[in-house]
Design a protein around this nucleic acid. Sequence first.
DNA 1: AAGACGAAAGTGGTTGA
DNA 2: TCAACAACTTTCGTCTT
Length: 308
Amino acid sequence: MHQYIKKCPECGGIHLVLNKEKGEMICRDCGLVIEEKMIDFGQEWREFDPEQADKRRRTGAPSTWTKFDRGLGTDVGQKGDIYQLKSKERNKFFRLRKWQHRISTAIERNLKLALAELKRVSSYLKLPASVEEEAARVYTLAVQRGLVRGRSMESVVAGALYAACRRHEVPRTLDELSEASGIDKKEIGRTYRFITRELGIRILPSNPVDYIPRFASALKLNAETQSKAVEILEKAQKEELTSGRGPTGIAAASLYVAALINNEKRTQREVADVAGVTEVTIRNRYKELLRELDLKDEIKKKFLDEEE
DNA sequence: AAGACGAAAGTGGTTGA
DNA sequence: TCAACAACTTTCGTCTT
């Protein structure tokens, strides 16, 4: 995925994300899909010898994880043709059908419900289709491995969504997921950790920069301030101020400082609210930022400018 | 009166024995 | 499995605008 600094026509956010798999440009702020028709004709794999070519080439109907059977359902014959068979064969068919029924109903019924819930939550959060798809995939795997047993379906859905968001660098906080799904934050965190561990999904630590656009637009800060915040954030990362700290706190502090510098002052309270952290955390990060980066000068300069 | 600041105690999660 | 630990929160009193 590559990130473009480009303005979103819908919400004015500056971060558009190109998703090559789906050929979409997605706005991280509002989830607007900008160029759905963009097509990547390239292969994502390379062939070095015929054996690999055999393994890697494939084709078939497009399949999707957001349908409970990935749009590839098969039923053991229902129609009249089975009555042409001898009774022995017929019994076999009935047996197969019964088995298929047993296996599939449990999982399928669960999936149908779960995917409906998943759709609900993801549209509430305005998540792009690619994330929804990813979450559906994760959930399906979880069901097949029996990881849902003992956990509520909803919490696993929420956990899958959270994981999908992180992977696609469209992070939502646990609080937001919690609000959208009505599941306790802790519960989501727990199932999230559980299913990612069990399924061996690797997730990069979330990057504070990813939060900037959304917070900024929630605070109605202009694009300049956003860029400033990103700039500050990058400096902070160089100084290793970011490791170990909660990404939202750092993002919030950078925005707060950037807003000060750009004469778009917001109170700590306002920033804290949209970022889902407390004022205290912002203050701590903000102090560190001032101390470690030479932002003091910039703020001083700003005041000098005002006096003129 | 509202916002900013900082100290102190509490909470939940991670880590390492 | 338990204790130490860091990050973050809550709460509250004080200072500044």
